[in-house]
Amino acid sequence: MPDALPLCARLPIAIHIEPLLAALARVPADAWQPHFNTGYFSGDWSGVALIAPANAVLELAPGSGEPKPTKVFAGDPAWQAALNQIDAPIRSARLLRLGPGAAIREHADFDLAGPDSDLRIHLPLRSHEAVEFLLEGHLVPMRPGECWFLDLSRPHRVDNPSPHDRIHLVLDCQRSPWLLQAIAAGAPTTPTLGLSRGRRAFAEFQALIAADANLADALLAIEEHKQFIETVVALGQQHGHAFSEEDVQSVMRQSRQRWQQQWMA
């Protein structure tokens, strides 16, 4: 049985970023199309297909057909040069752009689950340190010039509060021995995943509650979930710890999961 895939891994390959940025600059503005999954984001979330399944309903959507290069891809050899570094059948390649102030809500891509599913690879081209890619609540510190495998069948969300575009080249690859080996080889040197701003602020708030018996007593008395979460967020604001209801809900969800996991040995 093959080893389970990690949550994510930075592959031990260097991407030559300059030719890709130059190619990106040559992509016509009207090639960018809004992402098909309109229910899951706010702000500008759009993309350009470079390689798309022949039978995909929309160029940016998944499909099972033969992968076909698009005009944009064929018009610039820099894309093929980058993809040559990945020794796995590439089923789709897309440029995905999250505009300033845009956010993708938490979701899981179930088409990437299962032992034979495609593996999704991210090559960040443009980003900003304020951008937060959260995978199961952990901050994935992806930087331009790197190449990452991410298990996006698990819950993830992206937030771009910066004034800049965040653009990644996103590949869906069939599993190949090379790719699985690159993921395994990259795991030990993958940077530690961090906490989001909201979760860091929440951790500070938890320390405050641990030290303040009156606040803790007031919160202990609230039995109703919605009222509890609203009170916690408001108290956090009041004490200078900014986090969202979503942050509190994700802490509660993980806490329940951790407790239940002990029965699933």
Binding site: I209, A210, A216, L219, E223, F228, V232, M252, S255, W259
Partner: peptide, 12 residues
């Protein structure tokens, strides 16, 4: 006890 929201957030 774990049904209380408090313990889902602040248990130690």
């Amino acid at each position: 006890a774990l049904r209380r929201p408090f313990n889902q957030v602040f248990r130690r």
